[in-house]
């Protein structure tokens, strides 16, 4: 199982969500059990997308400014960025299949 890149506070993450393309962000917390269970689903989803979607996780407890700016009310929150703007959001657990069904309309 590949691990998700942790984008918390990194310039690479800031660049990714403000650039062209599709980026999926899992906003998580260190004590969130469901976050631990969704991470392998997102990693598998990213692998299946063959580079079309880039995925990161972001620790809300270490970047509360980002969490507040994006109105994160619960964990995990999934934020989908397309071409530098927030395109959609979900909360709670999702399988790889659910992630594909959700993101597919935003591709292309």
């Amino acid at each position: 199982m590949a691990l998700l890149r942790d984008g918390t506070g990194t310039p690479e993450f800031a660049t990714a969500i403000s650039s062209s393309g599709v980026t999926l962000v899992e906003v998580y917390g260190p004590d969130c059990q469901i976050c631990k269970r969704i991470e392998p689903m997102i990693a598998a989803f990213e692998g299946a997308m063959d580079g079309v979607v880039t995925a990161y996780k972001l620790d809300a407890s270490r970047d509360m400014v980002f969490a507040a700016q994006h109105e994160v009310r619960g964990l995990p929150t999934l934020l989908l960025f397309k071409d530098g703007a927030l395109a959609d959001r979900k909360s709670g657990f999702m399988t790889t299949t659910m992630l594909k069904d959700w993101v597919r309309p935003f591709l292309g």
Binding site: I34, R37, I38, M41, G92, F93, M94, T95, T97
Partner: peptide
């Protein structure tokens, strides 16, 4: 298969 993985992820959802 997908149902079972969802239940594993968050049974109360």
């Amino acid at each position: 298969f997908d149902f079972a993985l969802r239940a594993n992820g968050d049974p109360h959802a």
